Amino acid sequence: MNATSATPAERDRAAPGSARILVWDVPVRVFHWLIVLCFAGAYLTAERESWRLVHVTLGYTMAGLVVFRLLWGVMGTRHARFSNFVRGPGAVMDYVRSALGGRTQHYAGHNPAGAIAIVALLALALAVTASGWATYQDTGGEWLEEFHEAAANIMLGVVGFHIAGVLLGSWLHRDNLIGAMITGRKTGRPEDGVRRAWRSVGILMLVAVFGFWWTQWNSAPTGGDNGPAAVSGKAARQVQDDD
């Protein structure tokens, strides 16, 4: 390879001492795939009343996951912290220009452009879950329900851009970024890796989520032969008034 024409990412891979390093700890990976599951499941069940319990449960789970990610973004490992990857507009523009010029800058964690998608998705997830909770409690009226749907659709669009960015980044850096979010490992310098995977925290996350799901199912009002069924606060009050 001609060193004068190699991209920074290619030089990083070719440099002596480069290896497969641990970048994403277990809590980050568990959060990522659980949030994927929750958003996809909640979005697909939004219009079906018979799946209301699933929709609400996944929405509440997503809210809890976002709260955890905000805390882990301050307390977590190196590449999980917001201070490590959230940068100003100048850094974002430099990264975009380098990508367009074929000289893509390499980052062990999230690149500056990807960081925008991460922050946007977290903010939208909070907006979706908060408006969904208020709608479920019948406290906001029809406009809030419309806001909830609009925020979910915008979030879906940002997810699409995020996936496109991941695929593009995988091609530019010749590194499987989707696989990295499964294994936690990317190609890089050993000094850029994290020392601990924090598997115990990831296991606790799964226990908490599955425990919450079990509680939701077993504490929900029964819907006759169809099993547990979720009802809004307004509907529950109407049933009590009828009695």
Results as ranks from 00 to 15, higher is better:
L206G: 01
A236D: 09
G211W: 06
H32L: 03
I35N: 08
W198Y: 13
M1E: 03
Q240N: 05
E145N: 08
L100V: 12
V23Y: 06
A99Y: 06
I35H: 03
R11N: 08
G193E: 04
R29H: 00
V239M: 08
N2L: 07
E146Y: 11
G102Q: 11
V96H: 08
D12T: 11
E142I: 12
L71K: 05
A91V: 01
M62H: 04
A151P: 14
T77S: 13
F210H: 05
I35R: 10
M75N: 01
G157T: 08
S5I: 11
M75S: 02
G224H: 12
L65H: 05
G193A: 15
T77D: 07
V56E: 04
Q216S: 15
M93T: 12
A42W: 11
P112N: 07
V67Q: 05
E149C: 00
V23C: 06
A208L: 15
A208S: 12
T61M: 13
G188H: 02
W217C: 09
A19T: 03
Q137F: 15
V74R: 07
Q216Y: 02
A134D: 00
R196I: 09
V96M: 15
V207Y: 04
I154D: 04
S83R: 14
L100R: 14
H148Y: 10
M155I: 09
W171F: 09
E142Y: 06
F82G: 00
Y136S: 14
F68Q: 02
A151Y: 07
F212R: 10
W72V: 00
A235I: 05
G90N: 13
L206H: 02
S5N: 10
A130D: 04
G114C: 07
S50M: 08
V159S: 02
T222S: 14
L168K: 12
R174W: 00
R29E: 00
A180R: 08
